[in-house]
Nucleic acid binder design. Sequence first.
DNA 1: CTGTTAGCGCGTTCAT
DNA 2: ATGAACGCGCTAACAG
Lengths: 357, 357
Amino acid sequence: MANIKDVADLARCSIATVSRYVNGAAPISVEARARIEAAIFQTGYRPSEIGRSLKRQATRTLGIVVPSLTNPVFALSVSGFQLAARLAGYHVLIATSDYDPAIEAAAVETFLGQSVDGLALTVCDSFSSPALATIDAAGKPNVLLFNPADQPDRLAVTVDNIAAARAMTETILSRGHRRVAFLAGQFAASDRSRLRYRGYAAALAQAGLKPPLPLELDFLDTTPDAALLPLLSDDNRPTALFCSNDVLALGVIGALKRFGARVPDDMSVVGFDGIDLGQMVEPTLCTVAQPARAMGERACEQLLNAIRNTPVDDPGAEHFLDFEIHHGGSLGPAPLIVGPIRPVKQLHPYNNKQETA
Amino acid sequence: MANIKDVADLARCSIATVSRYVNGAAPISVEARARIEAAIFQTGYRPSEIGRSLKRQATRTLGIVVPSLTNPVFALSVSGFQLAARLAGYHVLIATSDYDPAIEAAAVETFLGQSVDGLALTVCDSFSSPALATIDAAGKPNVLLFNPADQPDRLAVTVDNIAAARAMTETILSRGHRRVAFLAGQFAASDRSRLRYRGYAAALAQAGLKPPLPLELDFLDTTPDAALLPLLSDDNRPTALFCSNDVLALGVIGALKRFGARVPDDMSVVGFDGIDLGQMVEPTLCTVAQPARAMGERACEQLLNAIRNTPVDDPGAEHFLDFEIHHGGSLGPAPLIVGPIRPVKQLHPYNNKQETA
DNA sequence: CTGTTAGCGCGTTCAT
DNA sequence: ATGAACGCGCTAACAG
């Protein structure tokens, strides 16, 4: 790989002149300019960002850590973050934590070692995050994405999860449902899930109903069928299920269909996130949508402000974006007669390899 | 941010000793070791990867560019790539091209400037990719992911798209279908789509059928409903639709349901990719599954081999992984009576904002 | 307009 | 076992 000296030698000038040309930092004589251009073309020279970073003491690189890339809501937020970063001339390093605080912390260590200029992260629990502590100790600009702010001066881009879940629960209740269960995928590992449960519980309480405990479904490689069975086969089964995210909700709807239950006639199901695929299925998924892409973009802007120390009206405040209730077909009126739901087909895992071609 | 000299001063030793301690490169006296450890703890010192990279002339960083992160098949492959890289002690830079060859090329420029040690990429068309040309010119180790190899000595991790599409088409034909259409999302911008069409066309031809031209559906912010109308409302409409990817297939199934058509009774639909969500909906999506996560991992391994110049039995060969036909419920037998399909509801876009909370 | 030089953080060679 | 010194690629301050 050619370096600046190779170009300078070939162009018969000093490296300073080449640098000035590359950065447009000062006027260059036409002859020198021509020789430099030729030399750059000949050598295929490309300035080394790592050399630049060393000198500049800044990398123009941001880090972002999310629980996973396979949940569309995170993929979308990363996408927005990346776009905003690129428009501002920044690069992005991405890490996934797999909902593990230890991996979170390791990713942060990595990023600090890489000298990123700032860091966005969606952690499991912002109030007890070793990763966040590490960043603070290092004094790196940072912003939370989806998580609530754990300190008054913490930057955070999120929606009001409690209010959102409360609004959604009220919507469910308005359709006549009185037995509503809350299902969570990663309850222990997600402060969002817990906030949403609080909103749900508050709405139920206000309606004079006693909120049941959340049902935690930790299904990864299998269907949620087995875990749902006790809940569904009860004589006093719920008539509506509030799932803490859309991926979970779609899985639950699949299970219900396999059980021979109709959605929403026999059981209503709602989700949270507003992923695109929820609007592509029938019935469409009733959910509370977060503007995930915009949130990623906003997080990036906030972070860049912090890095550049841009004065803002309301520094270090929690940044709430609006959510939207999507009235999909998966939420219907409470059924008049309710019976237990039991499997009619044999349970089977998702990844059923039925034939190899 | 503390640097190695700060630590050395505090520990009353030279930077060389600190370096040796940090890298475990040579034995250190117990007293010095203790002082260094204390100093590191006190200062919060973290070795600068950028300093190391400058010295080492290698960054232990890989780049990967994919069309988008919001298509689960790419998100999954990136996830696998990332995992394999981390296990090998490498970091990963990710870029998305949005199916634009110019952005692809720009991403490659960026990565080269960042001095990544190697590059994995899913390009629009490997046979006419400026990005690929740039990498070759720079002599950077690289591997194609999902794309076919454009040269004999190109590393590529893919499935045999032609054979896969052919097998799937034969499966469709075996159910009695005689009019099968091919729908592509990004036909022009995806060499995979075109290969799959070739496999499809070959299977039809072998069955004595004339393959119709592919129908290109470039729907991003709207439903495919309008674009499908001419095809579906024809008296001689197809009885099965081969979609070039799963996201497209799910969108098409949604459109059919909105039209009041039943899948698979009135129309069969199959996809390509094998995304998880395809198995969560009812009917489950019949598709040919690629091991996307494993492909990402394999691509990473191949790339690392190339970087380390590991001798391999079959260097620079196209690397085919096995695909699998997933027999989902969306493929049924050809209907006995076939009538045109026309909309029963009003068309509406996906992102119908029905209420704001 | 151009060249010389110092120094960013680090690993390493060569002494000791 | 330890330290001094160089250089990786680059930019900026200074000198001309």
